[in-house]
Simulated assay, not measured.
Amino acid sequence: MSETVTTATAPPHEPLTSLSRAGTMAARSLRISRRNTDALVTSLMLPVMLMLIFVYFFGGAIDTGIPHTAYVTYVVPGVLLLCAGFGAATTAVAVSEDMKGGIIDRFRTLDISGAAILAGHVAASTVRNLVSTALVLGIALLIGFRPTATATGWLLALAVLVAYLVALSWLSAAIGLLARTPEAAGGFTFLMLFLPYPSSAFVPVDSMPAWLHGFAEHQPVTPAIEALRGLLLDQPVGNSPWIALTWAGGILLTAMALSGALFRTRTR
Rank of each mutant, 00 (worst) to 15 (best):
residue 103 I to L: 14
residue 142 L to M: 13
residue 113 S to Q: 08
residue 139 I to F: 09
residue 123 A to C: 10
residue 108 R to V: 11
residue 162 V to D: 05
residue 131 V to G: 00
residue 181 T to C: 06
residue 113 S to H: 09
residue 107 F to V: 00
residue 162 V to G: 02
residue 164 Y to S: 08
residue 165 L to C: 10
residue 191 L to H: 02
residue 159 A to H: 04
residue 139 I to A: 05
residue 126 T to R: 01
residue 113 S to M: 06
residue 130 L to P: 02
residue 134 A to H: 03
residue 173 A to T: 02
residue 126 T to Y: 05
residue 181 T to G: 08
residue 104 I to E: 06
residue 105 D to Q: 14
residue 121 H to M: 00
residue 119 A to W: 05
residue 173 A to S: 13
residue 151 A to M: 13
residue 152 T to M: 12
residue 173 A to R: 01
residue 163 A to R: 07
residue 106 R to L: 14
residue 167 A to W: 02
residue 183 E to L: 12
residue 145 F to L: 10
residue 188 F to Q: 01
residue 133 T to Q: 07
residue 147 P to E: 04
residue 107 F to Q: 08
residue 163 A to F: 10
residue 173 A to I: 06
residue 136 V to R: 04
residue 153 G to K: 07
residue 184 A to H: 10
residue 111 D to N: 12
residue 115 A to D: 13
residue 178 L to W: 15
residue 111 D to H: 13
residue 121 H to K: 10
residue 186 G to Q: 10
residue 181 T to F: 07
residue 128 R to P: 01
residue 184 A to I: 12
residue 185 A to K: 07
residue 133 T to G: 09
residue 183 E to F: 09
residue 106 R to H: 13
residue 172 S to I: 03
residue 190 F to A: 14
residue 174 A to H: 06
residue 186 G to V: 07
residue 119 A to S: 15
residue 111 D to C: 06
residue 167 A to E: 08
residue 104 I to M: 14
residue 123 A to Y: 06
residue 177 L to V: 11
residue 185 A to S: 14
residue 110 L to I: 00
residue 183 E to A: 14
residue 121 H to G: 01
residue 171 L to P: 04
residue 113 S to F: 11
residue 148 T to A: 15
residue 186 G to M: 10
residue 122 V to M: 08
residue 115 A to M: 12
residue 153 G to A: 09
residue 147 P to H: 07
residue 149 A to V: 02
residue 192 M to H: 01
residue 141 L to Y: 11
residue 143 I to G: 04
residue 155 L to S: 12
residue 108 R to P: 03
residue 189 T to I: 10
residue 113 S to V: 02
residue 109 T to G: 04
residue 163 A to W: 09
residue 150 T to Q: 08
residue 121 H to I: 00
residue 126 T to L: 12
residue 108 R to Q: 14
residue 134 A to R: 04
residue 133 T to I: 13
residue 166 V to Q: 02
residue 127 V to S: 02
residue 149 A to C: 08
residue 157 A to V: 07
residue 192 M to T: 13
residue 156 L to E: 13
residue 172 S to G: 07
residue 153 G to L: 09
residue 169 S to I: 01
residue 167 A to Q: 07
residue 115 A to I: 11
residue 136 V to E: 05
residue 162 V to E: 03
residue 110 L to N: 04
residue 189 T to M: 15
residue 119 A to T: 13
residue 136 V to N: 04
residue 113 S to G: 12
residue 108 R to C: 01
residue 160 V to D: 08
residue 184 A to W: 06
residue 148 T to R: 14
residue 184 A to P: 05
residue 192 M to L: 15
residue 149 A to Q: 03
residue 151 A to K: 01
residue 152 T to G: 10
residue 136 V to Q: 06
residue 140 A to L: 08
residue 109 T to R: 10
residue 128 R to E: 09
residue 111 D to Q: 12
residue 150 T to S: 15
residue 126 T to C: 12
residue 178 L to K: 10
residue 162 V to F: 09
residue 185 A to M: 10
residue 176 G to Q: 06
residue 169 S to K: 03
residue 173 A to Y: 08
residue 129 N to Y: 00
residue 107 F to C: 01
residue 112 I to N: 02
